[in-house]
């Protein structure tokens, strides 16, 4: 395990403080980012035009065969012409991701909230959570397919298993950031344990919870597509297999464009939520 990777994976217990700094740094990189001026956005758009136009030009100039790399215009055309066949798969992928992530994230969040209240139990459970975080849940898909068949169940289970531990481990880091003075403040006004939880602990942990949600959902997307490629009769991952086996590269890249769109949408959603709920920390 490299140092960089170790920085990203929070360990529980003694070294919590140090890890938290690394995670918090990651948090600001993920959630914050510099705000951009209209000029910068224009430049970014210009670069996109140059890259797409350049690719189009070079591919046509050197007459790259369609099955090696299709020009952007062919990908766009494929996206439009294949749309009637693609959209049900897009819906399948999004549903699997949403359902799997919702299940995994809910369990991960609740587990983090509960377990951080019991330091001993936390120490016992942590290695197993780390195991879940580090093991690619994709590897379980063939096994799950044996159990549940080629339907949506194995994929949703895999997505939940991939995203849940990510949400849990980051939320737990957030919940461990206890500020005793703030808890004492709430107590001094007669707050109940539940009120301390909802009014102090959750808002305090929110920046880390959002990081967990974002990383977890991106892991979820990876696992959704991977599971569809390994053991699925439907979904965008399945389409990747299908089009590549038929050497229909424009259609293949059209699917990639859809996947990239889902990924960016996830990022934007969590960026906006994070901006609203965690801006107090910056």
């Amino acid at each position: 395990m490299s140092d960089a990777l170790q920085d990203k994976i929070p360990t529980f217990g003694g070294k919590g403080q140090k890890t938290e700094v690394g995670i918090a740094g990651g948090a600001s990189a993920l959630m914050g980012g510099p705000s951009r001026s209209a000029f910068e956005i224009a430049i970014i758009a210009l670069v996109a035009v140059v890259i797409i136009g350049g690719a189009e030009l070079l591919i046509r100039l050197f007459e790259v065969p369609l099955y090696i790399f299709p020009p952007p215009s062919a990908i766009g055309a494929a996206l439009i012409s294949e749309w009637p066949f693609l959209w049900p798969h897009l819906v399948t992928t999004i549903c699997e991701l949403l359902i799997g992530f919702s299940i995994g994230a809910s369990i991960g969040f609740v587990l983090a909230a509960v377990i951080t209240q019991f330091p001993f139990a936390e120490k016992i459970i942590t290695p197993y959570i780390l195991l879940l975080v580090t093991t690619p849940m994709l590897a379980l898909v063939p096994l799950l397919v044996l159990q549940f068949g080629f339907g949506w169940e194995p994929r949703i289970i895999a997505v939940a298993l991939a995203s849940g531990p990510m949400v849990m481990i980051n939320s737990a880091t957030g919940f461990r950031r206890v500020d005793l003075a703030k808890i004492a403040l709430a107590k001094s006004f007669g707050a109940s344990t539940l009120q301390i939880f909802t009014k102090i602990r959750i808002p305090m942990a929110m920046p880390m919870i959002m990081v967990g949600m974002m990383i977890g959902s991106i892991f979820g997307l990876l696992t959704t597509v991977g599971a569809e490629m390994v053991g699925g009769a439907e979904g965008l991952g399945n389409r990747l297999n299908y089009y590549s086996s038929m050497i229909r590269m424009p259609q293949f890249f059209a699917v990639i464009v859809l996947l990239a769109t889902i990924g960016i949408t996830i990022y934007v959603i969590f960026f906006l939520i994070g901006k609203k709920w965690t801006s107090w920390e910056s």
């Binding site: 403040l185 006004f189 007669g190």
Partner: peptide, 18 residues
């Protein structure tokens, strides 16, 4: 336990930043 007639003022204000 905390009493409604007693209020505490803490070091460094202790406002909730969010």
């Amino acid at each position: 336990k905390p009493h409604p007639e007693i209020a505490m003022i803490f070091q460094e204000a202790n406002l909730l930043p969010w």
